[in-house]
């Protein structure tokens, strides 16, 4: 009886300690969120969102930085989606079970773990210098593409695997080729998962600084790029540059910038998640 009691007591203690750790995580996250919002909301107004920075960003707005980030992410999406989705299709529908496929999987998980600054170096050497795209939206987007690809590939493969095998067989049994089966049945059926996973990956790309540090970003630029070969301002880089190289940077404006960035990423991610669960309710296997 005594032994049982002691076991119960130990369990209670363990549970409390572990629970406290879980709560700590929640508290940290809540603190981060509240801190950003409370420090940043004052700066947010239409003018701040649309006008360009004045006096090295101590005054004015962040219009060009928002636009630049949108540019970068759009171009990244343009490159990443087709390639990433096809690569996911390869792994799920075409790849044989062999050493090569295993190596590809290994390469993909490894790509996800390569430090973002190393992608920056690679982008500098490959796109800025060798391909001679200069420091530009194009170079930055290509660099971000390399970083985002593993996310899109993994999301696609997982979504494709959810599609029941029966559905593929039904299409093949109707005399469809493999590609037609993939294009008309498998891909449409798995779109919610693919799109949501990709959006989450692209939202992350929007917040990256290190990869664009020497491939795309410029500290001050009065307007949006006119071509993919122009440099751009970007939200995360703007925060970094202000904090580290502008004396007496404006706290209000920089926290405002951080809020815009975090809110943008969160809103897009949440919207993608909600959209997926709505779609999932429609398609149930």
């Amino acid at each position: 009886m005594n032994r049982v009691k002691r076991a119960r007591l130990t369990e209670q203690i363990a549970k409390t300690v572990l629970g406290l750790m879980a709560v700590t995580v929640l508290v940290i996250a809540a603190a981060v969120l509240i801190y950003i919002v409370s420090k940043g909301y004052r700066a947010i107004n239409w003018e701040f969102l649309t006008t360009r920075p004045v006096k090295l960003g101590r005054e004015g707005g962040i219009g060009p930085a928002i636009g630049g980030t949108v540019w970068l992410v759009s171009l990244t999406a343009l490159f990443t989606l087709p390639v990433g989705i096809l690569a996911g299709v390869y792994l799920s529908e075409y790849a044989a079970r062999n050493l090569l496929t295993r190596s590809i999987r290994l390469a993909i998980t490894n790509m996800a773990g390569v430090p973002s600054i190393v992608y920056g170096l690679f982008g500098l050497a490959a796109f800025v210098m060798l391909a001679n795209f200069k420091v530009s939206v194009l170079s930055g987007a290509l660099t971000l593409t390399c970083m985002t690809l593993p996310v899109v590939i993994t999301a696609t493969e997982e979504a494709l695997r959810q599609v029941p095998q029966d559905l593929r067989h039904a299409s093949l049994a109707l005399g469809s080729t493999k590609w037609r089966t993939v294009r008309k049945v498998v891909l449409p059926a798995s779109m919610p998962g693919i799109v949501t996973g990709s959006i989450l990956g692209l939202a992350r790309a929007a917040g990256e600084t290190a990869p664009i540090l020497f491939t795309a970003a410029v500290f001050m630029s009065p307007q949006l790029p006119r071509s993919p070969l122009d440099r751009v301002m970007a939200l995360p880089y703007h925060i970094y540059a202000e904090v580290t190289s502008v004396p007496n940077w404006s706290e209000d404006l920089i926290w405002g910038t951080a809020l815009v960035l975090v809110a943008g990423i969160s809103i897009v991610s949440v919207a993608a998640g909600v959209w997926r669960s709505i779609q999932r309710r429609k398609i149930r296997w």
């Binding site: 879980a22 995580v25 929640l26 940290i28 996250a29 809540a30 981060v32 969120l33 801190y35 950003i36 420090k39 989450l200 939202a203 992350r204 929007a206 917040g207 990256e208 600084t209 290190a210 995360p236 880089y237 925060i239 970094y240 904090v243 706290e251 920089i254 926290w255 951080a258 960035l261 975090v262 990423i265 969160s266 991610s269």
Partner: peptide, 23 residues
């Protein structure tokens, strides 16, 4: 709840964590 919270933590850009650290 915890799952969404963790996802949020992972989504916050590192430069923003840096900013919070600075402040």
């Amino acid at each position: 709840v915890a799952k969404s919270v963790v996802e949020f933590m992972a989504a916050v850009p590192s430069v923003v964590y840096g900013l919070i650290g600075v402040a």
